[in-house]
Design a protein around this nucleic acid. Structure first.
Lengths: 337, 337
DNA sequence: CTGAAAGCGCTTACAG
DNA sequence: CTGAAAGCGCTTACAG
């Protein structure tokens, strides 16, 4: 069985392949009769255009690459969901590329990626949007990119983020307003710019209430559940024990909750626990976690939408947006007794 | 700035483009001197071959598509992890394509996908591997595919599954051996073949112990957490209340656990709860869930590895494998009092 | 409204 | 060991 190409269709229909190309792309300037004839031959021969050939001629692939390296699986899932929505609306497809390396190895890895698949653009999810080396590399290769949840930059790139500092401030305010003064804090992954932002918000809230910052209440996590367990152990061993814990994401908060419960502590009566992200786990456990809802899907969707429109029209304005996050109170926090 | 192609390299190096192509692909029959000269020009010009052009000439894209439609996000994450490992080892890339439609719309959706991106092969994850229409369509389009966690078939396709029936049998045995006789069961999504298999295993275990099957103890779920909440409500309202619940996946089991805890029931003292999959949530909650560890990553990795080798050498044997699953006991199940 | 020619950037098959 | 020619299946730019 011979492969059916634009040429077979053209000869079957008795027209030039340019005309076939016209009906394929819904271009004007084709008589209704010709169009129908060609359409009929499409059906008859069961013709599907070859996207690679189209790609070569147009120099594009209609594929966006999504880079990530994130210990929180649910965060990745949400990123993908948003990216996929944007792709779907624009007839693009999404290629996913986790990569665990930093520095030199990372650049080689991306170079390899670009050598095996042509990508029209790349979404950089945390922490990649903050890797200056990588961003410079993409610029030098003239690969369009968009940054999600990265630090603000005064450049011309596409960037969508949410206000981590403000979110952390608000959730700390919530705890302080409940009467808590001894509030432990678990940091996120050091490479993520959100980590510093959330820490800042926590400190700003403490300061605004005249509560002295206490270093002993701060633990270094990395956004993984496992790191939350380790941090929780240290925190619960403190004496006096803090009356509340604010973990930089919900996975780590869930770990604190589990460990506290195992140790026969009542949450929130004995200790209040707050997270960040509003990941699914925040409502899948009991008590449900008080947290900050971050619009991860929406951030990524906007970033990819802008990226795609930038690919089509590179002269557009840079798009830099900061979305709002909001406090969600559940059962894991309560007034101090 | 002119784009640098194989032609610019060839003229710079003073050789034919065929020779450039040879060093690009590490082919033999190039003198060391020539090779080095060309390599030097690569660096000098910062040349990167165009994957689309290569793809057109070779008629391949080095991209595998992953189809899914699964209410369990962690399952998808695990599927992706396995698929990505296989792709990485073979210099392939992974394109993800969730699709929510059935029947006619589904086929159109896939046709559209194949029209925008050329895929060298497709992995069908549950429930797609069991959709006869889709499988027939891919066959007619001559798109290589591999099926993950689908029903056994006497055909020539690549298929990797695990033994759901046996897993469900074993976990039910575990409960019965702990003294439970009234064991509620929450079914999975009706479109997934695993749903029937797990139900069968549950019934086989009951039967082998002479415990009469009771329809009132069976709820229809769909693998989502939400469906688990609904099922849990019905089950906990039964009187007499069953002493154990076996949910067809961990999300639904987690929902039962949360609802039971909210209702002041002690797990496992008042009621034992078991899940299936060994999803992350099974160990992120307290008490941890007794469950069946299913090698989702490994299944997918094997399927994609076979798919890629089948793409390279289509004459190979069909690969149909059933992997083992194993019981993991945690704190959510205990002997009846 | 329609088409012939050239080109996208590679590889394949063949010749020397 | 090296290269000239043809081809992969489309689109772009131009001409009529």
């Amino acid at each position: 069985m011979k492969k059916v190409t634009i040429n077979s269709v053209a000869s079957h229909a008795g027209v030039s392949k340019k005309t076939v190309s016209r009906v394929l792309n819904n271009e004007p300037n084709v008589s209704a009769a010709t169009r129908e004839k060609v359409l009929a031959v499409f059906k008859e021969l069961d013709y599907t255009p070859n996207p690679i050939a189209r790609g070569l001629a147009q120099n594009r692939s209609f594929i966006i690459g999504c880079l990530y390296d994130n210990p929180s699986k649910s965060y990745i899932t949400r990123v993908q969901t948003g990216a996929l929505e944007a792709c779907k609306e624009n007839n693009y497809n999404l290629l996913i590329h986790p990569c665990e390396f930093r520095g030199e190895a990372l650049i080689n890895n991306i170079e390899q990626l670009l050598q095996t698949s042509r990508l029209d653009g790349i979404v950089l999810t945390p922490p990649f949007g903050d890797f200056a080396e990588l961003v410079a590399f993409l610029k030098s290769k003239k690969i369009p990119y968009a940054r999600v949840a990265s630090a603000l930059l005064q450049d011309d790139s596409i960037s969508v983020r949410s206000n981590d500092e403000q979110g952390a401030f608000e959730i700390t305010e919530h705890l302080i307003n409940l009467g808590h003064k001894s509030i432990a804090f678990i940091k996120g992954h050091p490479d993520h710019s959100a980590t510093q932002q959330r820490f800042k918000g926590y400190r700003r809230s403490l300061a605004s209430h005249g509560i002295e910052f206490d270093e002993r209440l701060v633990e270094e996590g990395n956004f993984s559940y496992h790191s939350g367990v380790d941090s929780a152990r240290s925190i619960l061993d403190l004496s006096p024990r803090p009356t509340a814990v604010f973990a930089s994401n919900d996975y780590m908060a869930a770990a604190v909750l589990k460990l506290a419960t195992q140790r026969q502590l009542k949450v929130p009566d004995d200790i209040s626990i707050a997270g960040f992200d509003n990941a699914p786990i925040a409502r899948h456990i009991w008590p449900g976690l008080t947290t900050i809802a971050q619009p991860v899907e929406e951030m990524t969707k906007q970033a990819v939408t802008q990226l795609i429109s930038h690919i089509a029209q590179p002269q557009e304005q840079p798009y830099q947006v900061t979305l709002e996050s909001r406090l969600i109170t559940r059962e894991s926090t309560s007034a101090i007794k």
